[in-house]
Design a binder for these strands. Structure first.
Lengths: 132, 132, 132, 132
DNA sequence: GTGGTCTAGACCACG
DNA sequence: GTGGTCTAGACCACC
C-alpha cells in the first residue's frame, strides 16, 4: 500500500554533477519534493549545513545557498545556532479562493505542457503514476 | 497513435523565465518536441525570427540563436530572405528524454500546488474534471 | 510641491559599515525603498553587479547576493548577459481582497509598533512625516 | 505627558523571526522601551523566564539570555527563587534611538504595503480610519 | 556546534 | 560585458 510506505522512505540526497543543474538547485528541488510527498513536514530539522556539505562532498557555502533560498521563499525557517527547519505553512484560504488558485496554477501548467507536446491525458497519466 | 494526431495540435510556444533554462534552449526544445511528435514535419516553415520575438516578447537575437543552433545541428534549414524550415533530419527523442521533460515541468506544478495545500489527489481530480 | 520633486531624486547607494546591518541587506533595503517611493519603477535597470561593486567598493558577490535575494522575492528580474531589472508587479486583486490584505499587514505592524511602545498616533505622525 | 499614560498601555511582547534581529535582542529592546516610556517602573516584576518562553514559543534559554544581559547592564535585578524585577536605573533612550526603531519597523510595513500596490496615502488613510 | 557574512578568485553561460 | 556557479577560507553571532 502506498499510504503505509509513505513515511518509511528516508530523506536521501544525491547530486548529479553531469546534469548541468547547479548543486544548490538540486538540493532545493530534493527538499521541495520531500515536502510535497510528506517525507518532510512542518518542524522537521534539515541536516546541518556542514553535515550535508560533508555528505555530498561539496562546499558548505553551496548548501548554505540552497537553504538560504528556501528560507527567502518561506519554505524553511532557520534559527542561528540551532539549525534549519521546515516552516509552518500558514494556509488559511476559503474554498472559493483555493479553487481560484488551483485553476490559475493549473492553467499555467497545462499551457506549458502543451508547448512541449504533452496532452491532458499525458499529464494526468504521469501524475497518477507519480502518485502510486 | 502519433500519426493520427498529426496537425491536430497547434504549435504554441511558451517561455518560463523562472525555470533557469535559457530562453533559447526552451525554444529549441519545444521545436524538437514538436518535430518528434509530428506537430512539425519536414518542409514546414517556422515563425520568422522577428515575429516569434514579438510573440514571446524577447530579443530577436535570442530567437536567432535558437534557430542558428538548430541549423548547426541540421534540424532546420534557413533560406536567406525566405525563412526557416524543418529539415528532413529525423528527431529521436527517446522516451526517457520525453519523461525527463514531463517530470521537470510537472515538478514545478506539484510543488507549487502543495505549497498552497493541494495534494496530489486534489490536482489529479481537478485535471480530470477539466478534461471531461 | 512634493509631487513635482518625486522623480528628480536620483538613485544613490551608500553603505554604513558600522551599522551592523550586512551590506547585502542595506542594498536590498535601499532598492526596496526606491521602489516604494517611485525612484525605481517597473522595467528600470539596476546598476550592473560589477559597477555597483566598484561604486560601493565591495566584492561583486555581495552585490550579486542582494540582487539574487530580490530576484527570489520577485522584486527584480534578471536576464543573463543583459542585466537586472525591476520586475513587473502583477497585482490583480479585487477591492475586497485588497482591503483584507491591507488590514492584515496593518494589524501586524500596529501590534509590533505597540510592543515597542509606539501608539497609533506615533506611527501616523511618523508616516505623515515620511510622506512629506 | 508620559506620566499620565503610565500603566494605561499593557506590556505586550512580539517577536519578528524575519527581522534578522535575534530574539534575545528584540526582548531586551522591548523591555528597555517599556521602561523608557513608563510602562515598566522600578520594582515591577517581569514575566518569569519560563512563562515568557511559553508565551513567545521560544527556548527558555533565549529569554534567560535577554534577562541576563539586562541584569549585567543593571537594568533588572534577579532574586533567586522570586523573579526578575526592574532595577532603579534610569533608561535613557534618546529621541534618535526611538526614531531609529520606529523607522525600522515602519520600513518593513511600507515596503510590504507597496508590494501590494498600496501607496503611502493609502496606508495613512487606513490607519487614520482605524484610529477613529 | 550552529548558521551568517564577506572576500578573492576562477570558470562558465548568455546575449 | 552581463550575470551564474562554486570553491576556499576567514571571522562573527547565536544558543
Amino acid at each position: 500500500m502506498a499510504a503505509s510506505r509513505k513515511n518509511t522512505r528516508l530523506l536521501q540526497f544525491s547530486l548529479d554533477p553531469k546534469s548541468g543543474v547547479p548543486y544548490y538547485k538540486q538540493i532545493i528541488l530534493q527538499i521541495e519534493m520531500a515536502i510535497a510527498d510528506s517525507r518532510l513536514s512542518t518542524g522537521d530539522q534539515l541536516p546541518t549545513v556542514r553535515s550535508l556539505a560533508v555528505e555530498l562532498q561539496i562546499n558548505p557555502n553551496t548548501v548554505a545557498r540552497a537553504y538560504s533560498e528556501l528560507e527567502i521563499r518561506g519554505i524553511v525557517h532557520t534559527q542561528q545556532g540551532t539549525g534549519t527547519f521546515i516552516a509552518d505553512k500558514e494556509i488559511q484560504l476559503d474554498e472559493i479562493e483555493r479553487e481560484r488558485i488551483l485553476a490559475e496554477i493549473t492553467r499555467g501548467f497545462v499551457t506549458k505542457a502543451s508547448s512541449y507536446g504533452f496532452s491532458m491525458e499525458d499529464v494526468i497519466s504521469y501524475l497518477q503514476e507519480l502518485n502510486r
